[in-house]
Design a protein around this nucleic acid. Sequence first.
DNA 1: GCCATAGTCTCATATTATGAGAGTTATTGA
DNA 2: TCAATAACTCTCATAATATGAGACTATGGC
Lengths: 262, 262
Amino acid sequence: MAADNLSDFSRPEAVSTSNRVLGVIDLFTEEEPIWTTDRIIERLQASRATVYRYLQALTAAGFLSQLARGAYALGPRIIELDRQIRIADPLLRVAPAVMAAQRDKVAGTQLLCRYYGLRVFSIFEDRSDPRIETSFDRGRPFSLFRSSASRIILANLPAPHLRRLFLNHAGEIAAAGLGTTWPVFRDTLKAIRKRGVAVASDIDTALIGMAAPIFAAPEIITGSLVFVRLRAEVTERDIDSLSGLVIDSAKLISGRLEEASA
Amino acid sequence: MAADNLSDFSRPEAVSTSNRVLGVIDLFTEEEPIWTTDRIIERLQASRATVYRYLQALTAAGFLSQLARGAYALGPRIIELDRQIRIADPLLRVAPAVMAAQRDKVAGTQLLCRYYGLRVFSIFEDRSDPRIETSFDRGRPFSLFRSSASRIILANLPAPHLRRLFLNHAGEIAAAGLGTTWPVFRDTLKAIRKRGVAVASDIDTALIGMAAPIFAAPEIITGSLVFVRLRAEVTERDIDSLSGLVIDSAKLISGRLEEASA
DNA sequence: GCCATAGTCTCATATTATGAGAGTTATTGA
DNA sequence: TCAATAACTCTCATAATATGAGACTATGGC
């Protein structure tokens, strides 16, 4: 369940004990947030002593916390590190103010998304319509090939990068309706890039998202800004005007981001 | 900078490679959120190959993300794991609704805090007074001996646990004004426990916090609810009425928590 | 399309992680 | 308060693997 990185051909594992230790963290999912020592022993097929050593290391580092004897859950270090990411993230310094300023005009939910290797994450949300449950809350990962947020990012990735993606993920790309051949894929994305906005309803069909790209530097895509509305309540004209607004807002954020790093 | 756990006598390191790998994460602080490969090599005093192996393992697991060639920052897996903690945390399922319902009566900031070994973390915040900057945002760790949030938790810890804490942290305890001998420490906390609320201004002197305990099960302290107001704007009478309210709210949260696990 | 820099690979060796089982410490319930 | 019963840790010989040096390869910026 670990996040992929871009060089996604499996290579020989270099530091395998560390990988096993880090892998323990992957056991703790939404469905199974609590693990007992015995179940971990069973799952890892390792000896009791070894598993205790792993748990000791992870608990000492704060990645796990012991709820009771023999029961573990994810630990406080993760919450602390998430805070550090939030504090250090230049995107989170400039975007929320821009998003808050136009809350009334959007009259829906605004999402700020960030691009990470093969994934896109929502990292901030500004809501004004309480009926919209985006399922895009901070930390939820999305495929790079689905959702407006992802597609506008994809559309702005450099061409060699896209070619590699196409080679390694042709199935996913076809399933997402982005084309079954490289020229079609490339041209589909080119059109989205030209338009400057991606519009989609593919994650939640009751909603419609309009996403514009955010750049850390010219040509360097770093994330996207998305406006989300109830699909049944928007007209073609609304889509046009919101698209214009999301493009302008994303440009404003990009500008401030580039200023900040200058 | 790793979180301590309770058995805080340093024991021999069991899985030392893993500890070194996990230790790389500790390099990424608020002050230095970006590290280059070269600086990590220098810092770890390890060979280039080894550091690349560590970085590869951490990046593949998503704990680090590569910003550019040779430049790393904390990665998306942390944001994802924080979300999992939020989703799985029973306290976050029941408390926010209770807190929202009394927002107007509190007319300040409400903090939900959780107890983790030697630390207390704010895990949720409900603001109604924008002037109050609590510095208690989600993920900020606080000593178990400072702040009203921590003290009410401390006051409700089992006695053997407290005795161990006193033995290992006498200095910190004295510095926090909680007593220089075990009987004084014990009785100070007993008084707070009897009162049911801790009142303090020791983190930010312009603010005053009133904290009540939250129990996961009878006698099992798991966190605290804190009301924060501007100190200059509250009378003795306000403190009394807010203290009553925070005690009642925390009891309500505890009740729902115990129901949920029943 | 070149060149500098970043990153990877190989392999012999030193280091360390591992498991079995004995030993120790906590917790629970009477 | 005290057994009884887990839960956890330690020891040590051995198997496994992490490490560094340096040659090699890939990448991306111009």
